[in-house]
Amino acid sequence: MAILSVENLSKNYGAIKALKGISFSVPAGSVFGILGPNGSGKTTLLGIVMSVLKASGGGYKLFDEEPNDAHRKKIGTLLETPNFYHYLSAVQNLNITAAIKGRGEDDIDRVLEVVNLTQRKNSPFSSYSLGMKQRLAIGAALLGNPDVLVFDEPTNGLDPVGIAEIRSLIKKLSQQGKTIIMASHLLDEVEKVCTHVAILKQGDLKASGNVNEIFVHEDIVELAAENIDQLDTVLNEMQGYTKKTKDDGTIQLYYPQGQVKLDAINSFCFNKGLTLNHLHMKKKSLESKFFELTN
């Protein structure tokens, strides 16, 4: 069953096309990352699915059905910002959430414990720090233990400890069989917790599918010698790498993950009469991969 399927969805704000006919589907039990730079349409997409924005074209289904209010009651959602009544406490706010959802009233203490807010549960929301507000929003999404969760930038405003806690929480929820749809501009975050991913850029869907298929891993070997042109010629005779680039006095060789043998490269060059003065293996940086995917 698809938890969410989006069909040719588009959204225009006047002349600006925020979404340009996007289609994908979220399988049950997956942790589905929606990845893209700021302004790529992630929140717009989730806003339409959550019925707060009107689509300009196309449609979507929830649980393989035409979307209705009851569907949203079954989904725990944090969209963009923590939205609460400033003058009410955490408990009073969650009482309202529970009353609207029609479930979870007896679950308030548990979720406050999960997001570490028990100590401050009776303080007004307006006195919370940004991180506490974000944690309360995550707590509200967890209310009533829903099977589907939607998190838009869940680690926004959290400190490193908070980020680690939320990521392990998401993993734990996923292990319990829950479906999690998560929007993020942090590739690292998506890569660490997601099983599936859709990549958006300026309203276009660049790629979608299994994380391991989308992020093909590569290792890069960087080398240099006194005579860089001679090194370049010699390396043309060598086998095994997929791509070669040259810049600023170094040459980069790209290998499929785990297939680099530095000693073999070194002895190959030595046998050809070349002594290397630089040989270094580096993991491809996530940022460069992100740029590659979104450019």
């Binding site: 019925s51 209010d69 009651k73 939205n83 400033h86 959802k101 029609g102």
Partner: peptide
Amino acid sequence: TNEFSFRTSRQNIIDGWSRQE
């Protein structure tokens, strides 16, 4: 207008109210 500035107008809908409600 509080509902709009707190963005709870959004959240109430997200949590399952219809706009009509």
